[in-house]
Design a protein around this nucleic acid. Sequence first.
DNA 1: TAGATTGTTAATCGATTAACAATC
DNA 2: TAGATTGTTAATCGATTAACAATC
Lengths: 231, 231
Amino acid sequence: MEKEELHEEALGKLNIKGANVSPAVIKRLPRYFRYLRELIRNGRMRISSGELSELMHVTASQIRQDLNCFGGFGQQGYGYNVNYLYAKVCEILGVGEGFSAIVIGAGNLGRALVRNPMFEKRGVDIVAMFDVSPEVIGRTVADIPVLAMDQLESFCRERKVDMAVLTCPKENALEAAEQLVTLGIKGIWNFTGKELDHLAPHTVVENVHIGDSLMTLCYEMRALEEKDDQK
Amino acid sequence: MEKEELHEEALGKLNIKGANVSPAVIKRLPRYFRYLRELIRNGRMRISSGELSELMHVTASQIRQDLNCFGGFGQQGYGYNVNYLYAKVCEILGVGEGFSAIVIGAGNLGRALVRNPMFEKRGVDIVAMFDVSPEVIGRTVADIPVLAMDQLESFCRERKVDMAVLTCPKENALEAAEQLVTLGIKGIWNFTGKELDHLAPHTVVENVHIGDSLMTLCYEMRALEEKDDQK
DNA sequence: TAGATTGTTAATCGATTAACAATC
DNA sequence: TAGATTGTTAATCGATTAACAATC
């Protein structure tokens, strides 16, 4: 089939290697992932940048520009094949790379994260949790065993662990992170608030400051109030 | 004191009203809040934009530019008074406005959020949780009572509730949000993944897609891998 | 006063949008 | 073929950085 050929060809184009993709584009990719997943769930087979732009409230130009950073996934006069585009976006984002993860800290946040379907949906496999508290060590959370921090080293040496989700107290974050880097972990999802960037050249750190989002909301609420008061 | 006078004067300048503050600046404000809080904890009294820029890994120019959106909080030749600047940033961000909040959904996420010191630190007071499950209704989480969704309306009519934290299943998000808007809630912190923006002109929505951050990390991990493989 | 550092304007850089030729 | 829609270049817009005069 003609279509298949086009897709076969485009497959080679996937251009992340030297890719000079701007941070702004990268930040938008997960959003494409979500919308495309939804379109598939609704049985949608094809979509144009114009239609998708209405759905996502962005310009069609931006969508075409963004996707073209990674290769020509569409077809003139036709638009985009939803399944194919979704597959491509998954590929770009590393869904299905089979990343494995451990969670450091089995407190409220750690336990809530482990129970969240988010990891499964994105192909990240949580294999263990670690904590120092005897109260939780030996228990399981959503079928994930909670091990002692002492066991971290031997565990990581025996199994391939790609990622660590850091939810321990801020005070212990640096020590834990340094150990993780030594053990060859490639990515740290950092919820501790401790600055860990530039820790090591071969470890990526993604910081989550959930409170920042709460503050942005408070700011907007204030701004709205003030706007309303004025009138 | 001379210093006090300056500050008194500057107080009037706080310029959020008509303020045309760009989204980029607003997104950075919580970060200033965090660093200033830390500086105060360390007993720091004054700081220059140059020093702060080293600490935060941004340019001094950006710091001065950002802060000047809201007024002149510094002093030539001296820098910024840490306590005063912190107070100003708090004021801008609505910390200490005394916002009250309810949490819709007492699942894993809702319970983890309620137990997080984040709300207290930012002056947001959680007054109740709501759920439909008889298993949790009547219980308390971190001293916050879990009420039935049936009670939402009467509760909001009796008490001032400014904000709702939406952690219920995606399917119930729209209905809940519409009810909240009707009850006069001014801000929705939306964890459901359901699009709720443009719901109402007098309600602000802040969306949290925690999974997007996970995907960004996966992307960066892949990108790093590929870079390393190349060499 | 001299030195330091802000507030602010101007220059640069990057990201978004518009436009259109290429092509399915 | 004609219509539709992409890929891509050029124009616009916004955000960041540099520079410096104002001033503490």
